[in-house]
């Protein structure tokens, strides 16, 4: 005879599970309904329009979408080698007594709130960029085609590159921790065999560890990308907040998250502008969902957790 308490508890647990499914569904539906007014008003052109004019009530998503993708991809380019180095150090190089404290310190980077990164970026990194790095880089690349345009413009210190740098620091702990965890799943026999025939550490990493963990490593990188896409406060402080597609990495821009955070307080309930912001939120959710879903599918088989 099934116990009454069992039925109640199992029912509650199953209901909670369904509740989580409904929660995600509700987020998507609510954002889509909220953005409907803007999608109706501008049609598919909303996605490719670079306008953002609250006075004329004309809105487009192209600039923030560009800024979101550009800063996130740039952040990945910086964060992946750094994370790889840290993961290799923690799994292969560090003496046993160093591993735990250094690993914890790197993980603590992920615990620091986003707004702290924003303040630190604004008050520490931006002046360093404006005074030292940007003028130097602009001078160096002056006269070289392509690079000259990529690193052009007045050295304000803010802009896409600075935002990407801060994002990179924020996602390093996620990527590094995943890489470390999957590197540790490589069977010791494989590595020992390679060392046994005289491979160096780098050769073991390149020929044994990376091929063995390739899928999960990509999954970890996608996880970092997913985090970078939706990062709000840190980016808002340092990106310069201009609705223009910058051709220079040092130029100002915006991201979906930053424009929503900044423009939201100035939008009236029920206005077309608010709807446009919600539509941007919907687009961000779709992009993040795809990236995070890929990340999870790649990571799941190897990592239980």
């Amino acid at each position: 005879m099934p116990h009454l308490g069992d039925a109640v508890f199992a029912g509650a647990a199953r209901f909670a599970g369904v509740f989580v499914l409904l929660l995600l569904g509700a987020i998507i539906v609510v954002l889509a309904i909220g953005g409907l007014q803007a999608f109706r008003a501008f049609g598919p052109a909303f996605l490719i329009s670079t306008d953002w004019d609250p006075v004329q009530m004309v809105f487009g998503a192209a600039v923030p979408v560009f800024g979101t993708l550009a800063t996130s991809v740039l952040a990945l380019i910086m964060a992946v080698p750094l994370s790889f180095g840290i993961a290799v150090y923690l799994t292969e190089l560090a003496p046993a007594w160093v591993r735990r404290p250094v690993g914890t310190a790197i993980e603590l980077l992920a615990a620091i709130p986003s707004i702290i990164y924003g303040m630190w970026g604004f008050f520490v990194i931006v002046p360093i960029m404006a005074q030292w790095i940007q003028p130097h880089v602009i001078d160096t690349f002056d006269g070289i085609p392509v690079l000259e345009d990529l690193f052009a413009g007045p050295p304000f210190g803010t802009g896409l590159f600075t935002a990407a740098l801060i994002l990179a620091i924020m996602i390093v702990p996620f990527i590094a921790a995943t890489m470390r965890d999957v590197f540790e799943t490589v069977p010791a026999v494989y590595k020992e065999s390679a060392y046994g025939v005289g491979c160096t550490m780098w050769e073991v990493m390149r020929s044994i560890v990376i091929p063995y963990t390739r899928t999960s490593v990509v999954g970890g990188i996608m996880l970092g990308l997913g985090r970078a896409l939706g990062e709000t406060m840190a980016v808002t402080f340092v990106i310069g907040n201009t609705n223009r597609i910058a051709t220079s990495l040092f130029g100002p821009g915006n991201t979906i998250a930053s424009i929503v955070a900044l423009e939201f307080p100035e939008s009236q309930a029920g206005s077309l502008k608010l709807s446009a912001l919600l539509a941007l939120g919907f687009i961000l959710f779709v992009i993040s969902f795809i990236v995070l879903a890929i990340s999870r599918l790649l990571l799941r088989p190897r990592l239980k957790g």
Partner: peptide, 19 residues
């Protein structure tokens, strides 16, 4: 449920605010 929960874990928090 596990998949959705994992996605929510890394979903942009600003969107939860909008929601």
């Amino acid at each position: 449920v596990r998949f959705v929960s994992d996605v929510l874990l890394s979903a942009p928090s600003i969107l939860i605010g909008l929601f």
